[in-house]
Design a protein around this nucleic acid. Structure first.
Length: 561
RNA sequence: GCGCCCGUAGCUCAGUGGAUUAGAGUACUUGGCUUCGAACCAAGUGGUCGCAGGUUCAAGUCCUGCCGGGCGUACCA
């Protein structure tokens, strides 16, 4: 709590000691509400033992109306117990400015580009896209709430070998370059059909040497139709139509999960600048020719070597990422660029960034690559969209909807997404995520439904009592006190989640908050109580904070459940 | 081989170097609905924090080595 930090700093100064970095953290209820170890940190510079320093500080602070008690414990901890007056002030200030209370300012005025999700046209959205979209959205929300001017962008391969493979199978399936036959594909089967074509094309590329040549040629044709702005040839007509289907399918998906993007960066729009840049920087010695390809020799930097332009002269993923980075910098001149991808790309990204550092160091220094693991479902094999044994994003939503219906007799996207998003976000980023639709997204315990329910309960109370007076808040009992103390932790939690870009920090807090509230709820009637007007203010403040926290995670609070 | 990540209760996981006794959820055993919805609450069982050293007043947390698992390691994205 910042107010305590300020008071401690003031006391340290008053006692004539050199200011140490004061940190105040929550502590176990048996010790107090908050504690600080500043006495231990001061020990060496002051030249006294921590315990004695703590005693002096406690004496200095204990008269303050902010505290009920200030006690020294253990090796020199100072434990604080907040006064009712201090707690009342917090509740009042939450209810006065529910959307601003405790907001972080860590990104105030900063321009932030947040790239995530990154699906490829001509392919199917799988469970990984759902996962990465949910995380990216939450992180973007957190940065935006901290004052960041966040631009959410999405990158995807509308050119490249995977498109060439899909196009090959599409043309086979249509019986030739016959765009008019596309009308025969039912609207609801389009994405599915393209996904199947991708799998067929990939298998063929691996097994059939003749077809492989055609696919390689297709790849070149696709780059060329962009260069020549060809929308008329039968091949181009098929390409543009299917590409359009993909983007419609993506938009519908994002709308369904409540994630919004400012723009797509299709690879076709950045491939040229990537290609030109890599060639220009090769001439300056950053990249090298090798076996007909253009590479970056990462071994000089303890990384591995990667190809940027293949021996057919086509810019592959590496060169496209160079183009993307340049385009983003030109578009936004960002203070921070966040790129969220699967952890498989960690070393890859290091190589690309190391190469760009040679000629655009400022942009690279402001770029942060965040990674996450893979979603594992119980009993599932490793998924591969190239082999076709993957789980689609909609399959996961359907599975959870099925579980919801089984358990509660009804379901809705709002509830299903609340369950999925929370299950995805409550764990730290990085390691793989075990996701079990049946148990992990259960209706009990540390789950999205628990939190949504905890919010609905608060609303139900407020609805029942209607208008109430903002009377003075005093003589808090134990349950009321714990609820308010928990509310005061909000700002430091948000700061922590923002600093670390770690949504799980917020999840843990919100769950604890909901637990504290549910305990309060069991024992503290609001409607039929002499303390009704006081408790209503607490419930209102709690409702605001819980809703804000959930919204940061991309989770909405249902009107009813 | 080399590089990066992970290893905490039966299972899934939290855990900015600090508190006699390492926390949740789940599962299991109990108790609590005439109430602002019990999708809740309360109590209990369950740990050599992978192993071994080191740094520190203090290590699940930092360092080193080892064991186990995952990922990456040149023309896919």
């Amino acid at each position: 709590m910042q107010a305590i930090v300020d008071l401690v700093e003031k006391a340290v100064k008053k006692l004539g000691w050199k200011a140490a970095a004061v940190e105040v953290s929550r502590t176990e209820a048996q010790f107090g509400d908050y504690s600080t170890n500043v006495a231990m940190l001061l020990a060496s510079s002051v030249g006294e033992n921590p315990r004695a320093i703590a005693e002096k500080l406690a004496a200095e602070l204990s008269g303050n109306e902010f505290f009920n008690s200030v006690e020294v414990a253990g090796a020199g901890f100072i434990n604080f117990r907040l006064s009712d007056a201090a707690l009342a002030r917090e509740v009042k200030s939450i209810n006065a400015e529910p959307d601003r209370y405790g907001a972080s300012k860590l990104y105030a005025g900063k321009v932030v580009v947040s790239e995530f999700s990154d699906p490829n046209p001509f392919k199917v959205l799988h469970v990984g896209h759902l996962y990465t979209s949910v995380i990216g959205d939450a992180i973007s929300n957190i940065v935006a709430a901290a004052g960041g001017q966040v631009h959410r962008v999405n990158f995807g391969g509308d050119v490249g070998l995977h498109v060439a493979k899909t196009m090959w199978a599409i043309i086979q399936d249509l019986g030739g370059e016959l765009p008019e036959k596309l009308a025969d594909i039912p609207v609801e089967e389009r994405s599915e059909w393209m996904g199947r074509c991708y799998v067929t094309g990939t298998r063929t590329y691996e097994d059939d040497a003749v077809a492989k040549e055609t696919i390689t040629e297709n790849n070149r044709k696709i780059y060329n139709l962009h260069r020549e702005d060809d929308h008329d040839s039968p091949f181009a007509q098929i390409y543009w139509t299917c590409r359009g289907w993909s983007y419609e399918y993506f938009d519908a998906f994002y709308a369904r999960i409540g994630v919004k993007f400012e723009k797509y960066y299709p690879e076709s729009e950045i491939a040229e600048v990537g290609l030109k840049t890599v060639l220009a920087q090769r001439d300056k010695g950053v990249y090298e020719d090798s076996d007909g390809a253009v590479i970056f020799n990462g071994e000089k930097y303890g990384l591995h070597t990667r190809v940027f332009i293949n021996s057919n002269g086509i810019p592959i993923y590496e060169a496209k990422d160079v183009g993307l980075a340049i385009k983003k910098w030109d578009d936004y001149h960002f203070d921070k660029s966040i790129i969220l991808t699967d952890a498989e790309q960690t070393d890859y990204m290091k190589v690309v960034m190391k190469s760009m550092e040679q000629y655009m160091p400022e942009s690279v220094a402001r770029t942060l690559h965040l990674t996450h693991g893979t979603v594992k479902l119980p009993g599932a094999e490793k998924m591969s969209s190239r082999k076709g044994n993957f789980l689609r994003a909609v399959d996961v939503i359907d599975m959870v909807a099925g579980e919801y219906k089984k358990a509660q007799g009804r379901t809705s996207d709002e509830l299903v997404l609340g369950a999925i998003k929370y299950a995805f976000l409550k764990n730290r980023l990085g390691p793989n995520l075990s996701f079990d639709p049946e148990t992990s997204v259960s209706m009990h315990g540390n789950s999205g439904p628990y939190l949504q329910y905890a919010a609905v309960r608060a609303n139900a109370i407020l609805q029942k009592i209607g208008e109430f007076e903002a009377v003075e808040i005093n003589d808090l009992d134990e349950q009321e006190r714990s609820l308010v103390v928990k509310l005061t932790e909000f700002s430091s939690v948000v700061d922590g989640a923002t600093t670390e870009l770690a949504p799980q920090v917020l999840c843990t807090y919100l769950y604890e908050l909901a637990q504290v509230f549910n305990r309060f709820y069991e024992n503290s009637p609001v409607a039929n109580s002499p303390r009704s007007a006081i408790r209503a203010q607490l419930v209102q403040a709690y409702g605001y904070i819980l809703r804000r926290g959930l919204n940061l995670l991309g989770i909405t609070v249902p009107k009813k459940m």
